[in-house]
Write a protein that binds this DNA or RNA. Structure first.
Lengths: 332, 332
DNA sequence: GACAGCGATTGAAACGTTTTACAAGGTTTG
DNA sequence: CAAACCTTGTAAAACGTTTCAATCGCTGTC
């Protein structure tokens, strides 16, 4: 319907298409009266430039993609908002995609990014190998790794120092006199689990305690449901720990719910510390002590990095590490 | 860098560009040996078609936008996943955008949709007036209204029968013998508030109770934070109700937290019912009775409607209404 | 009075596809 | 054996912009 193009505008205003284009892109190159006349016609005809045509000339769409595991994870939603708000300031649209931790879905979206000739991609990678990265690079893609500090060269990344975060959490518990501590986490194949485990052990080292007083419960996923399962296992076990450090708030919330209902007092009988500090921690039945990460800021930082890689021609790749900070609340 | 286009492929394979295009779009029109040779070259050169060029010819990008208030609202995240998963099956990408309930941001994204010549837009509208809709229509946009049944003609919409949902919730409370009930909601300017209020009153009518035994607390937003505020006000009030119906789960969660900490027993001293049935309700300290809406299904339905409007040329606009259903849990 | 310099405007090429109309060659049909 | 018809492939136009080089009037300057 709205087949009104730059050509029609030019005709109506009695100028050339080049002038209309200039009014849009370099208004200073055009005399004021002409500019006014053209703008009036644009308004009257309801002309909206065709981004595809623009892309054909410039070679790139003014958009980036953000690929995360799952937007239903509140932490990742925060990250997404940070990216979106920042990218919008750079006049870039953000396309949000869910990989569901599946390499196939991830690949599909990366193909889309290439087809659309987007400016770049912010990605929470499923398996960030050097080879994988090289294949993206060979397609001329600009990449920023999210929540994953790269051992890889030639790529920007933003991550959280999870080792330090976990160390703070466990040191806090040890300081309160807790002897036997459980560490509840998701799959040990994920970097998040590994790092937060390492941090816990480092806290034990610093306090000169033996590693074997840290009991590890590896669950199938970082969800509330799995947290409940962990709680049940804890309740059923012979010698119950006096404190639990959960590698993620969702796990902690599930666990909290189960133990409270079983009549265990928190933190009296059992102290709990979570990780990520999502909004819901504050709102839990017993407000949860948690390691604050700042997903929004992480998203912002990643977007800034990508924006720089897009704009600047002297861009140097950076690894940005965010220092998390323990927030003490009632649960510990 | 990757300046490899269809032309280069054609040259290398010793055929015309038209043939390469045919291999991609109508493989049956090309002889098997030729096809194989072209595909091999495409693979070897790592050719990826340029979507912008394709869009120029066809006039439309294979993508739709999904504009919601805020992805940090778990209900809307569910909707988003439903849309994304469904649209992907129709080979359409989904661009997720946050309007923050601001007409200005909404407009900005709608401009983007038009510039990009997207297939259509799924929108959780800020102020769906007839005039607003007409302005979209005049731009040739295909629109599906989300979570908003249109009093407007000529547009598809998917909504929840919030009046019925609220009626179920309040009837449930009345049935349990609760006399004085409070209705806690967000801004009364929002359709959600108005409808859920109307439903509550209808339950009173059905039970032949006077409207004035329903106390209304209008809060500034549908958030946990505001729920806490509501809880404080309730605790401070002279004659405390015996039951609360919250127009949204986030409000209910905040309220629950505050009253529990004040030593009020739930549901003994105070029964609570929420709305939306987000994941967190099940995981709350006291699992929350809530009105289940099914955001994922709502998203799916909306996406199907848009897909039909895109594909079919005999499309007729539909209003789809989802019937919510009360899920009883421990809080009431 | 010719000419350089400048601001405003323009014509036309280029971007990478899809698609239409047509050609060349081979096969069936009457 | 010619006419009609497939099958396979091609040349060229079209899509709506941006941008480069060129043109056109002017105003001063020597």
């Amino acid at each position: 319907m709205s087949a009104v193009g730059i050509k029609q505008v030019a005709e109506t205003a009695g100028v050339s298409v080049a002038t209309v284009s200039n009014v849009l892109n370099r208004p200073d190159r055009v005399a004021a009266p002409t500019r006014a006349r053209v703008l009036e016609v644009i308004e009257r005809l309801g002309f909206v430039p065709n981004a595809a045509a623009r892309t054909m000339v410039s070679g790139r769409t003014k958009a980036v993609a953000l690929i995360v595991f799952d937007v239903r994870n509140p932490f990742l939603t925060d990250v997404a908002r940070g990216c979106e708000d920042t990218m919008l300031a750079y006049d870039n649209a953000v396309m949000l995609c869910n990989s569901d931790v599946s390499p196939a879905k991830e690949r599909r979206y990366l193909d889309l990014v290439t087809e659309q000739r987007m400016q770049g991609v912010l990605i929470n990678p499923v398996q960030p190998t050097a080879q994988w990265l090289a294949s993206l690079r060979s397609r001329g893609l600009r990449v920023v790794l999210l929540d994953n500090v790269a051992d890889l060269p030639d790529v920007c990344s933003v991550a959280v120092d999870d080792v330090a975060g976990a160390e703070q959490a466990v040191t806090h518990l040890l300081g309160r006199g807790h002897d036997s501590i459980a560490f509840v986490t998701g799959p040990m194949t994920m970097r998040q689990s590994v790092d937060r485990h390492a941090g816990s052990l480092r806290a034990f080292d610093l306090a000169e305690r033996p590693h074997d007083s840290l009991r590890v419960l590896e669950m199938a996923a970082f969800t509330v449901e799995q947290g409940r399962r962990a709680g049940e296992r804890l309740l059923a076990s012979a010698r119950r720990p006096t404190a639990v450090f959960c590698a993620n708030d969702l796990l902690a919330l599930g666990l909290l719910q189960v133990v409270l209902r079983a009549g265990v007092s928190v933190p009296g009988d059992l102290a709990i510390v979570g990780y990520d500090d999502i909004d819901a921690t504050e709102a839990a039945a017993v407000p949860l002590t948690s390691v604050h990460v700042g997903g929004y800021e992480l998203g912002q930082a990643a977007a800034e990095l990508l924006a720089d890689e897009i704009d600047s021609d002297v861009h140097v790749h950076q690894r940005k590490v965010i220092e998390p900070k323990l927030v003490e609340r009632a649960s510990s």
